[in-house]
């Protein structure tokens, strides 16, 4: 069940989390940021499953990956898409 920490999948998940997390904070479009945050949450969920926390993994996939992204997209249409004002 455990991934080996130096393996390709584990390293790929870590890199995905770091890159999408950083880029989501820097892009200028809230919809793009929401999508990237969804990818970030999904990579986090896969990482939790790899660490053996399956319950946390599916909660994070449902709540963090789906619900937070839906909330962000809903907020986009009620405020503005641009993040520089």
């Amino acid at each position: 069940m455990m991934l080996d920490p130096g393996g390709l999948i584990a390293t790929g998940l870590l890199a995905t989390m770091l890159v999408t997390g950083a880029v989501a904070l820097l892009v200028n479009d809230l919809l793009v940021a929401a999508a990237l945050f969804g990818v970030f949450s999904f990579a986090a969920a896969a990482w939790f499953a790899a660490l053996g926390a399956v319950d946390v993994a599916f909660t994070e996939a449902c709540v963090g990956g789906a619900l937070t992204t839906i909330l962000l997209v809903a907020a986009t249409f009620r405020t503005t898409r641009r993040l520089d004002r």
């Binding site: 989390m17 997390g21 989501a24 904070l25 940021a33 945050f37 970030f40 949450s41 963090g64």
Partner: peptide, 8 residues
């Protein structure tokens, strides 16, 4: 969004 990253 940064706060969410911190929580993760």
């Amino acid at each position: 969004l940064a706060m969410n990253v911190m929580q993760v």
